[in-house]
Design a protein around this nucleic acid. Structure first.
Lengths: 257, 257
DNA sequence: ATAATAGTGTCTCTCAGACAGTATGTG
DNA sequence: CACATACTGTCTGAGAGACACTATTAT
């Protein structure tokens, strides 16, 4: 590195004299959109807020990042604290950051939102800031207010955040193998297909789906075992090492016509 | 909304008494990865930092967000202040947020990075915190240090940020019409094809590219005018209203074999 | 003329969509 | 048996890759 050494000394002096209060500082939160498929419906995990602001409203699990904590660590910690669910065996990626002024009535808050997929069917347990915690089918949330107990009007801008997360999930299933994150470690092709159908909200042609999945190298690997169904027993598979799909599986084009 | 009115009163009282200093507050910055194609090479706009930290290193344009400023506004403002380039006629989207502890030696800083595409060939003008501002071909940056004056070792984690932005741009060209953001308001199919070739770093089959672009409804619209080239003059097109490509244009699959 | 780029036509192969039919479990 | 789901085979049409060819400018 061709950096002048006198400037390194300058920098050390600069840092020693640095006063952080010269620049504005904001609250920084990490929130999680945890998606799963239950009873054939794409669902999101929400908590009922026990405290102000938006007390008694449903909201995404999340909270302030600690001073020496990485952003994704904060997301995992808040999820565990408020809902008892661990994100370890689960896919987690950054979704988007929301920081419009006044989106939080307390103070300026910038929220880094993570998107997670899980197969877990264990019931969440409310903890910490949460009065209750449970899954909602995303279809039941798109409509702003449904008149459920305490309303399902969501806190902050979380309705938009969930919509963004769902759209990201739908797109991701097209060109990645992440559908396997929604099912158990072993699964049948029928189960995998029902994940696509729940996330995309449309039926898929069964024979073509099978041909596409099995024709993609290392998407799934047979285990040799079978699982009972309501009809003929099905082969069990596990997720393979492939992560991307080339070419992608395309849902019916929702082009502008 | 079925919210109890007594709780609204509670919330007002809560907010009046709220003390922001109870929670940790971080510095929040907005940075910009501005990509363009010059001389057939995908290039990124960098500034040489005039001040500590990382004084004299090259870095992405950006800086701290103001207390009442939206995040994307801050990105546009910092870009204009440091390089004189306006992002108005340019595509801008959020790329990712980087907030690992100690990525900034001053204090905890969370940086929301935006990705921008532009056709402009106007030379940037250094201003504000920047000693110089110019474009670098991204290929020249992948190698950590090149031994240029003051080195091209990039400030902060910006080498990784640029790599993420380039990968996002490459993916976006596959399934969106955003290649048109890299060319002028009117352009030839040869110019558009050279954008793909520069971003993807591979030659494209000319006849098939033409068939694909013209066969996608509303990707481009003919203007009727022509432009001179080194050979036969070419039809001029403008960008159409389509935003997504179904099916996508796929670059050669870079599968795991 | 040659060089250079724009633009057209067409063959082939892959693959998605559709559908028919077979296999194997349960009540 | 009917019923449900898993699984196989095959036809067809759309579209990508490859290549040959023509068109129109500059020098």
């Amino acid at each position: 590195m061709a950096v002048d050494h006198s400037e390194i000394g300058d920098e050390a002096a600069f840092l020693a004299a640095y006063d952080p209060s010269k620049y504005p500082h904001f609250g920084v939160a990490a929130d999680v959109v945890l998606l799963t498929v239950r009873q054939g419906r794409l669902s999101v995990l929400l908590v009922e807020r026990a405290n102000h602001p938006f007390k008694s409203s449903w909201a995404l699990p999340g909270g302030f990042v600690e001073p020496d904590e990485d952003l994704d660590e904060a997301a995992r910690r808040e999820l565990a604290e408020e809902t008892g669910l661990a994100v370890d065996a689960t896919y987690l990626e950054q979704l988007k950051t929301y920081g419009t002024p006044h989106r939080d009535p307390r103070t300026r808050v910038v929220s880094i939102v993570y998107l997670a997929f899980t197969a877990r069917v264990a019931e969440p347990v409310a903890g910490d800031d949460a009065r209750r915690a449970r899954f909602f089918a995303v279809d039941d949330l798109e409509v702003p207010a449904l008149g459920q107990p305490h309303g399902t009007a969501l806190a902050f801008d979380h309705a938009q955040v969930i919509a963004d997360g769902v759209e990201r999930a739908r797109a991701k299933l097209e060109y990645t193998t992440l559908a396997t994150a929604f099912v158990d470690t072993t699964f049948t092709l029928g189960e995998l297909r029902r994940v696509y159908e729940a996330v995309w909200g449309m039926p898929l042609h069964e024979a073509n789906f099978r041909r596409k999945v099995l024709g993609t190298p290392h998407f799934v690997e047979p285990t040799g075992a079978t699982a009972p169904t309501d009809g003929r027993p099905a082969q069990l598979y596990r997720a393979g090492p492939a992560t991307t799909l080339h070419p992608p599986i395309l849902r019916g084009s929702r082009e502008l016509a």
